[in-house]
Amino acid sequence: MTKWINRPWLAAIRGCLALCICFLSIETQASPQAAEPQEIVAATYYNTFSRAHPVLKRVRPGDTVRTRTLDASGRDENGVQRGQPGNPLTGPFYVDGAEPGDALVVRFTSVRMNRNWGYTAYRLGLFSLTPESIEGLYPGRYKEGLLIPGRANLVPWDIDLERQMVRLREPVSGIVTLEFPAKPMVGCVGVAPAGDFAPTSGPAGSYGGNLDYNEIGEGTVVMLPVYHPGALLFVGDGHALQGDGEPTGTGIETSMALEFTVDVRKKAGLAGPRAATGEHIISIGSQPEFVSALNRALQMATSDMVNWLTTEYKLEPWAAHLLIGYQGRYDVVTAAGSMALKIPKKYLPQRR
């Protein structure tokens, strides 16, 4: 067969073989070792998601950060007051290469309780109840100054770090044992919002913020729109456990030891927060509490999921609508604010 191969073709074939060998060599080279996690402990904590705060640490895509957060009252793992209530934030972290229009990707590789106690509100928030059920409600005051000076509406919980259990310390029910497996989560994760807007660490919005979503724990990936160079990421407000919707207005508030890895997706154009767990992709209709009805948050989450499925998974619009219609699951993220829509990953196609 060689008689059919002239010299230019032979040279071309030799070039292709050399190129293939080169690619093979690159593929078989040992990948570089991942950088060691950076241990970063803040000396100052902030109560606003503001681009004006000094950068705590500059990191690169792929870097892993180990840090700590205070509880919602500003106390650390030793119970020492380090920041001001409520929800003091660790950060901001400046992520190299993140630009407006990109998405910041935060993978929580470790979310661990680092204290053996926490606290919650004593009763459900009035926003969780119908007006007629509030008449005759038991008083919201328990013991003055038991956990925080000037506060009487809080009760203590013991956290068993070895068993990963939480148990109400007092009052003690004569009927039911209020002891449950812990499910640590991060209440606040967000970036500096657009312009000079500097919301407090109380509400949520398109930038993330005080999401209080109990799916944001170890192994969860959170995606946030970037509005400023470096994204300016903040985290805080750890909960040992929280029911859907945070109906008491608190989780089991405690301090946390966190580890997370950051990355950047260029020109992602997100409208608001997204998340992914091992089983689901999640669109979050994130809005401040009490400003709009939950159906608005549901519409936001659903519209974003349609966009996600049609843009990144290449579903036909009608297929995206029907997948949501028959496999979607809605979570109440906060009882008077945000909703989330979850789609099981097992029904999604491979992204092209």
Rank of each mutant, 00 (worst) to 15 (best):
K3H: 15
R7G: 12
R7W: 12
L10I: 03
G15M: 06
C16Y: 07
A18N: 06
L19D: 11
C20R: 13
P32L: 09
P32I: 08
Q33G: 09
A34D: 06
E36F: 11
P37I: 09
E39L: 15
I40K: 10
I40F: 05
T44G: 08
F49G: 02
A52H: 14
H53K: 14
P54M: 11
V55T: 13
K57D: 03
V59I: 13
T67A: 05
T67F: 08
R68K: 15
R68W: 05
T69W: 05
T69N: 02
L70I: 12
D71H: 08
N78F: 07
N78V: 00
G79H: 00
G79T: 00
Q84Y: 12
P85M: 01
T90F: 01
T90L: 01
P92H: 01
F93L: 11
Y94K: 06
Y94L: 09
D96M: 03
A98L: 04
A103D: 00
L104S: 05
V106A: 00
F108M: 07
S110G: 09
V111Q: 03
M113C: 02
N116K: 11
Y119N: 10
L129E: 10
P131F: 13
E132D: 14
S133D: 07
P139G: 01
P139C: 03
P139L: 04
G140Q: 06
L146Y: 10
L147M: 11
I148W: 10
G150M: 04
R151I: 03
A152D: 15
N153Q: 10
P156A: 00
D160K: 01
E162M: 10
Q164V: 04
M165V: 12
M165R: 13
E170D: 14
P171L: 07
K183F: 07
M185E: 11
G187R: 11
C188F: 15
C188A: 11
G190F: 01
G190A: 05
A194K: 15
T200S: 12
A204Q: 08
G205I: 09
N210Y: 10
D212G: 11
Y213A: 02
N214L: 07
G217M: 05
T220G: 12
Y227L: 00
Y227D: 04
H228K: 15
H228G: 12
P229N: 08
G230W: 00
A231S: 13
L233G: 08
H239M: 11
Q242D: 07
T248V: 09
G251I: 02
S255H: 00
V262N: 01
V262I: 02
D263P: 06
K267L: 08
G269T: 08
G269M: 06
G269N: 12
L270N: 06
R274P: 00
A275K: 09
I282Q: 07
L294I: 02
L294G: 06
Q299S: 15
A301V: 03
D304Q: 13
M305I: 00
M305K: 01
N307W: 13
T310I: 07
Y313A: 00
W318D: 11
L322S: 14
Q327C: 10
Y330F: 14
D331E: 07
V332E: 01
V333T: 04
A340R: 03
K342D: 00
K342C: 05
K346Y: 10
